[in-house]
Simulated scan of single mutants.
Amino acid sequence: MPRISDEHRALMSLRIEQAAMECARREGFAAMSMADIISESGLSAGAIYGYYKSKDELLAALARRVVGGRVAVLDELSARSPVPHPAEALLEFMGSIAGPLRDGGLVVQVWGMSSNSDTIGAIARDAYGRLLEHMEAYLAAWYRDARDMDAAAARQAAAAVGLAVLALVQGWLFRVPVAGTKDDGQYLSAVAAMLRHL
């Protein structure tokens, strides 16, 4: 039997995860089943279970992929010269969130499920921890670059505001499912105005 290439495995994983994301968007994380994901992907049950043994394992992989994309954006912002001001960087970071995640409904579902499921809670906490770590790394880079702080002072300043800055993104994601509006203008203007005081 020929060996499956890493590229093929990566493409198959992406196909399965995209099918899971579409099922979650349509039916909700709690209601969707592996049978739904199999049907959506067009793959056999054997193919799906060859990559993911359970729905929770698939959700963990999906969370890693989504968070990995956001972490990459933060790391790219940190590496720029000059490092962009948080008022600009956060808007760019939020602008990088697209697809089913953009309307916030999936994030709200995960938030709700994490309080009742140890597995989903662990996935959510891990994702949040990674995002916070990289948000604080971006902020520390900005403090070093723009405020001419040494590394220790920059890390301390970033840790002091990192939770609040990340909460601005969470608030933005919750706006659509909670407030029922997709008009970002007022919220994004308020975020930019507040962050300009850093």
Score class of each variant (00 low, 15 high):
31 A>V: 11
31 A>H: 12
32 M>A: 00
32 M>N: 07
34 M>K: 02
34 M>T: 14
34 M>C: 08
34 M>F: 03
35 A>D: 09
35 A>G: 06
35 A>R: 04
36 D>P: 01
36 D>S: 09
36 D>R: 14
36 D>A: 10
37 I>C: 06
37 I>L: 00
38 I>H: 05
39 S>A: 14
39 S>T: 11
39 S>I: 01
39 S>L: 08
40 E>N: 03
40 E>I: 05
40 E>G: 09
41 S>T: 10
41 S>P: 02
41 S>N: 08
42 G>P: 03
42 G>N: 06
42 G>L: 06
42 G>Q: 02
43 L>I: 07
45 A>Q: 05
45 A>L: 06
45 A>H: 08
46 G>D: 12
47 A>L: 10
47 A>I: 15
48 I>R: 11
49 Y>L: 15
50 G>K: 06
51 Y>E: 05
51 Y>T: 02
51 Y>W: 02
52 Y>D: 08
52 Y>E: 08
52 Y>A: 00
52 Y>R: 03
53 K>V: 12
53 K>R: 13
53 K>C: 06
53 K>L: 07
54 S>E: 15
54 S>P: 09
54 S>H: 11
55 K>T: 12
55 K>W: 12
56 D>F: 14
56 D>E: 15
57 E>L: 03
59 L>K: 11
60 A>P: 03
60 A>S: 13
60 A>D: 04
60 A>M: 09
60 A>N: 10
61 A>L: 02
61 A>V: 05
62 L>M: 14
62 L>R: 08
64 R>F: 06
64 R>H: 10
65 R>H: 12
66 V>W: 08
66 V>I: 11
67 V>Q: 14
68 G>I: 02
68 G>Q: 06
68 G>H: 02
69 G>T: 06
69 G>M: 08
70 R>L: 15
71 V>L: 08
73 V>F: 00
73 V>H: 01
73 V>A: 02
73 V>Y: 09
73 V>T: 15
73 V>W: 04
74 L>H: 09
74 L>C: 04
75 D>T: 00
75 D>G: 01
76 E>Y: 05
77 L>T: 12
77 L>A: 12
77 L>E: 11
77 L>M: 13
77 L>V: 14
78 S>D: 09
78 S>Y: 09
78 S>P: 03
78 S>K: 13
79 A>S: 13
80 R>G: 04
83 V>F: 05
84 P>D: 14
84 P>R: 02
84 P>V: 13
84 P>T: 14
85 H>T: 14
85 H>Y: 12
86 P>D: 07
86 P>K: 00
86 P>W: 04
89 A>N: 05
89 A>R: 01
89 A>K: 13
89 A>D: 01
90 L>A: 00
91 L>F: 10
91 L>D: 11
91 L>A: 10
93 F>I: 01
94 M>Q: 09
95 G>N: 08
96 S>C: 11
97 I>V: 15
100 P>D: 07
100 P>E: 07
